[in-house]
């Protein structure tokens, strides 16, 4: 018996079915969608990285004599950097598994994914999408510590010389209430005022200085708190 006849016999006797065309079309669409979705998420992550860098107090580094690396690592938005990298890899995986994806060189796929994420991320950053996304994320993901929360943590270390809160009174010294509700007396006689500040009641500020007693803080620099997304022109 010819081999071709054996083949026909096997196909017919075992009733070997053919996979439908729709299945292959769907598979191809799935991988293109995976690519597109990953680029969008990668772009969003990149936009939040930009947002985080824009909001980060890198000048804090100059006030820390030791463990600058530790502080720098604390300032970097690792969650979003890792998210951006993961979705970059998923986008490459997606396009490589489309019907014709193998024809593109890995370098081309890699660089075009990066460029697309950067372009989309930059557009989202300037259109305010990054801030909204970050807020939605922090409101809906319990384990996620928002950029605002991280900023509060960094500026709630009076023993290390960093304090922040809202001005609740002004006499010879400023009276502020920190984010935990504790009242502090701020000696600001020798403090440098950076940024647009009138030091009036209800103004939110951040202070660099030295704790002298359990509720007295001697300020060397005072700047506006600059809530996320409501940044003033001058950086502190």
């Amino acid at each position: 018996m010819k081999n071709s006849q054996k083949l026909l016999e096997k196909i017919q006797s075992e009733k070997i079915p053919q996979r439908s065309r729709g299945l292959f079309v769907l598979k191809n669409i799935f991988f293109w969608l995976l690519f597109a979705f990953s680029i969008i998420i990668g772009g969003l992550s990149f936009s939040i990285i930009l947002f985080a860098f824009n909001q980060t107090d890198f000048d804090l580094l100059s006030h820390i004599p030791n463990s600058k690396i530790e502080l720098l690592l604390g300032l970097l938005p690792f969650f979003w950097i890792i998210s951006c990298l993961i979705f970059l890899l998923i986008s490459i995986f997606g396009i490589r598994h489309t019907k014709t994806g193998y024809r593109y060189s890995p370098l081309l796929v890699f660089s075009s994914s990066i460029v697309l994420s950067i372009v989309l991320g930059t557009v989202l950053f300037f259109s305010g999408g990054a801030e909204k996304m970050e807020r939605i994320f922090s409101e809906n993901v319990p384990v996620y510590k928002s950029l605002e929360e991280r900023k509060i943590s960094r500026w709630s270390l009076p023993e290390n010389g960093f304090l922040s809160g809202k001005i609740v009174g002004k006499e010879e010294n400023l009276i502020i209430e920190d984010w935990n509700g504790k009242k502090w007396e701020i000696d600001f006689k020798n403090a440098i005022i950076k940024g647009r500040l009138s030091l009036e009641k209800d103004e939110e500020i951040k202070i660099i200085g030295k704790m002298s007693e359990s509720d007295i803080f001697i300020a060397t620099q005072i700047g506006p708190w600059e809530r996320m997304g409501k940044k003033q022109n001058t950086r502190y």
Binding site: I16, P17, R19, R21
Partner: peptide, 8 residues
């Protein structure tokens, strides 16, 4: 046989 299954 594989080609047959995936001919589409």
């Amino acid at each position: 046989i594989k080609a047959w299954k995936n001919l589409n």
